[in-house]
Amino acid sequence: MEGYLSLWDEYGARIMESFWANLQLTFWAFLISLVLGTLLAIMRISPIPSLRAFGTAYVNIFRNTPLTIIMAFGVLVLFGVFKLQISSDFNLNFFQIAIIGLSIYHAAFFCEAIRSGVNTVPLGQAEAARAIGLSFLPAAQLVILPQAFRGAIVPMGNVLIALIKNTTVALAGSVAEISGLMKTMIEYRADQGFLIFLTVALMFVIIVVPIGLLVTWLSKKLAVAR
């Protein structure tokens, strides 16, 4: 126990700091990938064949590429070869590249989650929207998507939970986040190896469990009565 407490003395501040990085990655990647995923979903249900094809291609490419490879690509190719410089701050630059990588990857999953929500909306809703003179975009915005989001809360929640845990892959993108620190701690404090794992795992559980409960509650509360 003393050893574990001394670990906190030594690394406590960095543990919090690193985990905060994971939460920040989650927040920004969630926002961006949700917007991007919504746009992709609109493309995939649109009447314009070229947009549909683009949406389908995007989803197939990024859903089927390992996140680690997207992250490594960001750092080794976009930064390493093409010198992508979003921020002049060295560390912040990696952080932002990681956000982009996470967003691009999870947008494909959000797109599919939203599309599964679209499938919960009866065809008659779109027909009624068209029949009163709404064209595709207003019909999507006013009638289809509001119902689709309500029907997609559970799958979207699953994507969010996956995203939270996938922020640890930012390690591959040279971001100082919790799994990187975990590696360091295990290296220097091998005596506490098991507890280090448990601590980090528990931090994620503490964040993810309430989100899971919230998702279940929201999905019931916002369900569209038919």
Partner: peptide
């Protein structure tokens, strides 16, 4: 279409 009113078998009110 805005000039043509349509009433469906299954009502299709925006749920």
């Amino acid at each position: 279409r805005a000039d043509v009113g349509m009433v469906f078998q299954s009502f299709n009110l925006f749920a």
